[in-house]
C-alpha cells in the first residue's frame, strides 16, 4: 500500500511529468490558452496514457521480453500508441459523438505527445508490476492534468496583463512555467 502511495505522490507532485520531467511540453504550451481546451486535451491524454501504458507493458512483458526482442521496444511502442489513438478515435466517433466532438481535434496530436511514449518507457525501466503500471500511469495522467489546468488558468489572466512586446506568447509562457516548476520543487521534501 505504502509503495503505491509513494508512486502517486511522486508522480503527481514531486516529479511532475511536465514541470520536472519535461514530457508533453508541446500541448502544455500549445493548448493552454483556454481552460476548456486544456481540459479536453488532458482528458484525451489521460485516457490514451493509461491505456497505452497498460498495453505496452503487456506487450513488453509477454511478447518482446520472452522472445528476446527488446531492441524492438521503441518501434513496437510507437506503433501501439499510433494504432491505439486511431482506434480510440473510431470508437468514440461511433459510440459517443459528443465526447468525440469535444476531444476530436486533440486525439491525432496525442501520437506525437512524448508524455505517452515517455511514461510507457519509464514503466518498463522501473520494472513495475501490472498494478503499479496502472497506478503510475494514472498518477502521471493526473499530474499532466494538474499542470495543464493550472497553466491555462494563469494564461487566461495573462491575457489582460501588460507583458513587454517581445515576451508575448511562448516566452512569457515559459517564464510562467519556470515559476510553477519552482513552486513544485517545494514538494521534493515529501518523499
Amino acid at each position: 500500500m505504502q509503495e503505491y502511495l509513494i508512486i502517486v505522490v511522486s508522480a503527481v507532485l514531486v516529479s511532475n511529468i511536465v514541470l520536472s520531467q519535461f514530457l508533453g511540453i508541446c500541448p502544455f504550451l500549445g493548448v493552454s490558452k483556454k481552460l476548456s481546451a486544456s481540459l479536453g486535451m488532458s482528458g484525451a491524454v489521460s485516457f490514451v496514457l493509461v491505456l497505452a501504458g497498460t498495453i505496452t507493458w503487456t506487450v513488453q512483458t509477454y511478447l518482446l521480453a520472452p522472445l528476446g526482442l527488446g531492441y524492438l521496444q521503441t518501434i513496437a511502442f510507437i506503433l501501439i500508441i499510433a494504432s491505439l489513438v486511431q482506434f480510440v478515435e473510431m470508437v468514440l466517433k461511433k459510440f459517443s459523438p459528443p465526447l468525440y466532438k469535444a476531444l476530436g481535434i486533440f486525439l491525432p496530436l496525442i501520437t506525437t505527445n512524448c508524455a505517452v511514449l515517455g511514461v510507457a518507457i519509464i514503466n518498463i525501466q522501473q520494472e513495475y508490476t501490472l498494478g503499479k503500471v496502472l497506478v503510475h500511469s494514472m498518477s502521471h495522467a493526473a499530474g499532466f492534468t494538474l499542470a495543464l489546468v493550472l497553466m491555462s488558468g494563469i494564461r487566461e489572466r495573462l491575457e489582460d496583463a501588460d507583458v513587454p512586446e517581445s515576451m508575448k506568447g511562448t516566452p512569457i509562457a515559459l517564464v510562467t512555467a519556470a515559476l510553477m516548476s519552482m513552486a513544485f520543487l517545494g514538494f521534493s521534501g515529501l518523499i
Binding site: F22, M167, T170, P171, I172, A173, L174, V175, A177, A178, L179, S181, M182, L185
Partner: peptide, 8 residues
C-alpha cells in the same frame, strides 16, 4: 525551473 527561465 532554470530550463524554463533560460529558454523563455
Amino acid at each position: 525551473p532554470g530550463a524554463f527561465i533560460t529558454l523563455g
